[in-house]
Design a protein around this nucleic acid. Structure first.
Lengths: 230, 230
DNA sequence: AATATAAGTGTATTTTTTACACTATGGAAT
DNA sequence: ATTCCATAGTGTAAAAAATACACTTATATT
């Protein structure tokens, strides 16, 4: 595409991704160790510049893949950060995307470009200082999913395919940072009608094994898509 | 600020504003008549390019002022549109902002730049085709405020300083596109405790005059800010 | 057989939401 | 002054949703 009649700025769009995962009862996000200036050796959100000829949604997918090796995650935009001084080397406006994924279901983390030395899962409760304004971007994403969880059960993507209700509750508690009542939680989750009870139980635990459930994505979509488009 | 070490693209950020107003029982938005190619003479959302040295929130204020003469509106970002082909002349990523304002409390609409021939209020229920992807941007903003209205009483900024409960209800009905029950609506609104009943009544109507109310912004902030930052 | 650990379950209470129809008021018309 | 018209203003019962709360059951380990 030719650019005509528009001013050319020294301007760059970028994408930053906040990828949430859940493991060992802890909520985590995906960080990269930067291998380039500025902020070389710092931890940062996976993020990079948008190419001239790609839409921002595609860019988000490509960038996440290049930096972490993860593909095809359902990412959603949550906010755009456009302070003049947010990047020390120039004017960079960045669009924040988030996704919720299953840590163990994924292939190993392996950056494709040398721009990231490695990618790691890091507990959200113990984040170090991040490069750029990435701490702020993370907080914004976290606040977004917390608010959303209050009216939509969006947490299933973080769990293994088969999970117990207790695991689900622990996940909710991790996101909302508060204790929930076991009986009320179960009642409510089951009332949505989006869980399939399996004929199978948890294995390898030294106490009463819990029933396993599966998330019924079809029913979920039917129930919640109307609210989305409202 | 010097730009160092970052690629220079023929890339532009812009801002588009969806400004909602309410008048004569109808929800309206602010449009401009474009005076420049592309889409010369079309109706469009007030929008323009972000300068190199201004943050996007400031840019939104400046741009709205230049195109419509309105200042100091509390605008909020809602989504960023980054399809490659959304602008016929080049790659332009635009950040959408919205605001809810009082139509009659405002000074007259008067574009400061010749880029807009004039600015007008247009009913949302009868929008013509808009320039660029502005119809889509409008829909996205509308859907945002509708969803938000369901859990936060954000509509007061659209009403005159003193208003009746019926006016408030009509506004809700216009935004949500559905009829509400009068008694339940009043009960709920008053229960928030953010309305001050005045010792004053509606004037100039040929039927029983309704009590006037004022919005109590201090109480509103106290109640709803915690939910925002949650 | 005893122990330890978490799974699983029901009810009563409170709060919130919904459905629903008549009387009161004030200006306009006669 | 009386009537008419249009909207203001009001309460209650029923249903649904949210909350608070404690014991029994199942399984693996000792």
């Amino acid at each position: 595409m030719k650019v005509v009649n528009l001013p050319t700025f020294n301007s760059v769009f970028s994408i930053d991704c906040v990828i949430f995962g859940f493991d060992a009862g802890e909520l985590k996000i995906l960080l990269i160790e930067r291998n380039e200036e500025p902020y070389k050796d710092w931890l940062a959100l996976p993020g990079y510049m948008v190419e001239q000829d790609e839409g921002i949604d595609e860019a988000a997918e490509r960038i996440l893949y290049l930096l972490t090796g993860l593909r095809d995650l359902p990412m959603r935009q949550f906010h755009t950060f456009g302070e003049v001084d947010r990047h020390p080397k120039g004017r960079v406006i960045t669009v924040g995307y988030y996704a919720l994924i299953r840590i163990n279901g994924q292939k190993e983390l392996k950056p494709i470009t040398p721009y990231a030395r490695k990618a790691i899962w890091h507990p959200v409760n113990d984040l170090p200082q991040l490069a750029f304004d990435h701490t702020e971007i993370f907080k914004s994403a976290f606040s977004k999913i917390r608010r959303r969880l209050n009216y939509q059960p969006i947490a299933f993507d973080l769990l293994p395919e088969k999970f117990t209700l207790t695991q689900l509750q622990q996940l909710y508690e991790a996101i909302l940072s508060k204790k929930l009542d076991k009986r009320n939680f179960r009642k409510k989750m089951l009332s949505y009608g989006i869980l399939k009870e399996l004929d199978e139980k948890q294995k390898g635990v030294s106490y009463r094994a819990a029933k396993l459930y599966k998330f019924d994505r079809r029913k979920y979509t039917k129930i919640f898509q109307s609210e989305l488009n409202l």
